[in-house]
Design a protein around this nucleic acid. Structure first.
Lengths: 209, 209
DNA sequence: CGTGCAAGCAAGTAACCACTTGCACTCACG
DNA sequence: CGTGAGTGCAAGTGGTTACTTGCTTGCACG
């Protein structure tokens, strides 16, 4: 691992705890085990360093995907949700700090919210496919359900460690429970899914993969 | 309005934008229209000023209450939810900043989360009363539903202004829609409520108030 | 061997910060 | 009128911060 990478990782760690103002170049250099001057020679300025850090961070976390042809919504959504939450939980300190600095540095917060935004679009499209396949209730308030589901995932991943009493179920059970409640809200019952999967050639094809 | 109050309000405004480190005593004094020295003579130190500011802030926002005897869950929860969200939305900048400084100043974040925590307890108790009155499904996963509902309210109130696309419904419709989805999740249908209210003397008493 | 590049080290600079001190002013209250 | 509390103003203190400069060291490569 070269110095550049070491500094980027150290900057992320220090930023997560102390914020932009509190993350002094001295602290970062110590954490990275390099001389403070090296930091300036490599990145030019503190601001440039943090820009590079944010960019590297979002580039390193790819979104999970939802299948084009839904076969088992409960299982597919649960694993998708678990991966999303794991990503967000891992970055929770950086997310919190970035959101907290929204007033001073909007760019950081916006780049952090990019991932969840794309995920919401993905999820909405997936529910659209469920509907097209006749698996979801046509009258459900899908936008509201999606937004509540995303809020729950985000809130759990980012806040569980600081206010654990707000999340009664154990962390490993949470994705399945959120998905369960979400599916009920958009009118996808287990019975209906089992019934339709047998009836729908599209779903049968997907399940056969 | 005396100087002390003026400084407290100015401190809240500056803190909401710049955070603890960024909220310099000079900035606060300018914002309050007083001399910087007055700030130190009144509060002693910057830390003491912010402690007083946080204390004054939580003392100034009382929680809304849910009725002891549920009569119209949909209406009661919607107005409760609207008041809660209005409170949180008004303090959203301070909430964001405090949460962002969790790593450095845990006290601030915890005092900010105090209100929503009490609200969750209130809500859970209310659903318990719905169950006791035979108005809610005994098999529903109430803790998960409550936690998702709280996350949705919190997320909407705190994040809607910075990522509006994540909240598709207009702000004024959101409480009713969240409550609707929540009630479905805990098995309270409008039909069942109407039916049981006529049958339950407890509910009739409450409705007569 | 010599050349050049990357890195460390020591020191310094200009700005900013929380906080202090000393003095002058004002104004209600006796 | 006098006194004391509350405030403003100017200046300063010690510490921290981002960033710079000048010099030295180690090491790969021709």
């Amino acid at each position: 691992m070269d110095n550049r990478e070491r500094i980027l990782l150290a900057a992320a760690r220090v930023y997560a705890v102390h914020g932009f103002r509190g993350a002094t170049t001295r602290l970062i250099a110590n954490e990275a085990g390099v001389n403070e001057v090296t930091l300036f020679r490599t990145f030019g300025s503190k601001a440039a360093l943090f820009e590079a850090m944010m960019h590297a961070h979002v580039a390193a976390t790819p979104l999970p995907e939802l299948p084009d042809a839904p076969a088992d919504p409960q299982a597919e959504l649960t694993s998708w949700c678990a991966v999303m939450m794991a990503h967000m939980r891992e970055a929770r300190s950086i997310i919190r700090t970035s959101i907290g600095e929204m007033g001073e540095r909007p760019d950081a917060a916006l780049s952090v919210c990019e991932g969840p935004s794309c995920a919401a679009v993905q999820l909405t499209a997936y529910v659209g496919r469920l509907r097209a396949a006749g698996l979801a209730d046509e009258t459900a308030d899908v936008p509201t359900a999606v937004s509540m589901f995303m809020s729950s995932m985000f809130g759990d991943a980012v806040c569980r460690d600081i206010m654990p009493h707000a999340f009664p179920q154990p962390a490993e059970e949470a994705p399945a429970r959120y998905v369960d409640t979400f599916l009920r809200a958009v009118g996808v019952s287990r019975a209906a899914v089992g019934h339709r999967i047998k009836a729908s050639p599209q779903a049968r094809r997907a399940a056969a993969k």
